Simulated assay, not measured.
Amino acid sequence: MENISVLMVVCLLAGLSECLAGENGNQTQVTEVTNEDVAETSIENDAIHNLNQGFEAPAVLASNSTGTQSRCEPPIYTVLKQLGALEERLSATVRALEETNKKLEASEKKLSALNSTVTELSAEDKGWPRVAFSAALPIDGTIGPADVLYSLVYKNVLSNIGGHYNAHTGYFTAPVRGVYYFSFTSFWWGANPGSCGGSLYKNGNKIVSWYVTNSNHASSGSNSAVLQLQVGDNVNVRLWNNRRISDNTNKYSSFSGFLLFPV
């Protein structure tokens, strides 16, 4: 705004200078006309001409002054008009900046809320127990057939984060109420007549199963499940009656699980 005020003052001074210059020119013209008239007039009429000159000069000056004023008015009007246009543009720019600032403030609020949410989730996540395990059968051969429902014990532990899988019993026990993921794989050489099959059990209840019928060649099967468990619930894999399962150092038959999230 200070720049606009300075510009207005400069323009007004320029207009006044132009007006003064025009007025000086007009006064010189009046003087020249008056001297020329005096030179051509006879001595006898000096008094009359001097008298007339005294009356005519103000009229000429008045006429020239009016003309000068009319010539000064258009530039000043144009400058004021331009200044008004500049002021409108400046006001529009200020309004646009204010709108931008409002949008930025809204974005900052959203970002702050998002950061707060992430912080809360991180804090909750820090309280989550780390639960995950994976184990394989320890045999180099075949288990079965057995005439009972046989609980498989995966003693070859690959990982047991949190220590909630028991390598002596083959049971996983839930440490917290939450949603868990479990998977298991099975393998059978298939050299002898028979079949391979079993199930994933939760607290002694069958959940999902696998089954491979009589075959003269090696076969494999697998399955998985997402379970919601309470604290103390247990999960294990059991071989069906009169079924077989095989493994060797390649670890074909495995049992794995981990906590997805607490609830």
Rank of each mutant, 00 (worst) to 15 (best):
N35Q: 06
E36H: 01
V38K: 13
T41N: 01
T41A: 03
S42F: 11
I43V: 01
E44Y: 03
A47G: 08
H49N: 07
F55R: 09
F55H: 09
E56H: 00
A57H: 02
A57E: 08
A62D: 03
S63C: 14
S63L: 13
S65P: 14
T66P: 08
G67K: 15
S70K: 14
C72W: 14
C72K: 13
E73Q: 11
E73C: 07
P74T: 06
I76Y: 13
I76L: 13
Y77H: 01
Y77P: 05
T78R: 04
L80V: 08
K81P: 06
Q82M: 03
Q82I: 10
G84D: 13
G84F: 15
E88Y: 08
R89T: 03
S91I: 03
A92T: 02
A92Y: 00
T93Q: 15
V94R: 08
V94F: 10
V94K: 09
A96L: 09
L97S: 15
L97F: 01
L97Y: 10
K102M: 08
K102F: 07
K103P: 11
A106D: 13
A106G: 09
S107K: 12
E108L: 06
K109V: 11
K109N: 05
K110E: 06
L111I: 01
A113W: 09
S116W: 15
T119Q: 02
E120W: 12
L121P: 03
D125P: 04
D125H: 01
K126W: 02
P129R: 15
F133P: 09
S134G: 10
A135D: 10
A135E: 00
A136Q: 14
L137S: 10
